[in-house]
Simulated scan of single mutants.
Amino acid sequence: MELFSSSWTALRTAVDELPDRDFAQPSGCTGWLVRDLVCHLIIDAQDVLITLVTPTDKEPTRDAVTYWKIVETPTGDDPLDALIVRLAAAYEQPELLKFHLDDVGSAAGRAAELADPDLRVSTQDYVLTVADYLGAYVMEWTLHHLDLIAYLPDAPEPPAETLSRAREMLEKIAGSPFPVSWPDKDVLLIGTGRRIPTDAEQAELGELTTKLPLVLG
């Protein structure tokens, strides 16, 4: 749960420090500008708030790793993705996006800190403990932080500890470790299809290459 707070705070801080011009830059999400990604983060924060107040007495069906499923590589044509783009454009000014993310995002962060880690909650027809639910979002925040800065070389990167945890989770999802010498950031970018491996990296992957990309949804 501490990593949830660390990754979420770092991501919101990175957004808050972006100059207005960067909101029109592409992000690491196919078909989305930075402003579209920030709009998506607002909806994510709302989902966290909703889930944390949706308790259940049912037995858990997922944990922080099995929460994630492998989906098809996004094309940017999904109706929900298109809705995000229209909604982001409606904000008109980056400052409004920043304000809304800070408002809802801060609330989600406080709710996470106050939540009972053993409480069971329901989301997407899954049942998880709060600890596992928030643990799953370490992956979400870390990957989207990388998406945010994909074309912004001066923006701060995710915290080292959250990159490490996201890598650990991705290796469990893959059922195999990535080359030990690879930095966590490269593992996440290549493993999730955000960057194409070089020929040398492809050779190091060996049989693991047949499982990639691991597009999470």
Rank of each mutant, 00 (worst) to 15 (best):
A160T: 13
E140F: 03
E72V: 12
K172Q: 15
K98E: 06
F4T: 10
A10T: 11
E59F: 05
D78A: 11
A131Q: 11
A131P: 05
D20R: 01
P55L: 05
P179K: 07
A10Y: 10
A200E: 14
H100P: 00
L189E: 12
Q93W: 07
L119S: 11
P158M: 02
Y151E: 12
L101R: 04
A115Y: 11
P159I: 06
I70Q: 13
T142I: 01
E161G: 06
D118A: 15
V138Y: 06
E2Y: 08
T75A: 08
Q25D: 09
M1K: 09
A90V: 00
D102V: 04
E157W: 03
P153S: 01
K58P: 02
L148Q: 04
A136D: 05
L80S: 10
D118N: 12
E113K: 07
I173Y: 06
G31R: 01
L146W: 04
L87D: 13
H145Y: 10
D125N: 13
A160I: 13
Q124M: 12
I42G: 02
P177R: 03
A82V: 15
L96I: 08
T210S: 15
T73E: 13
V53A: 06
I149M: 07
V138E: 01
L83Q: 14
Y126R: 15
V104A: 07
L18I: 08
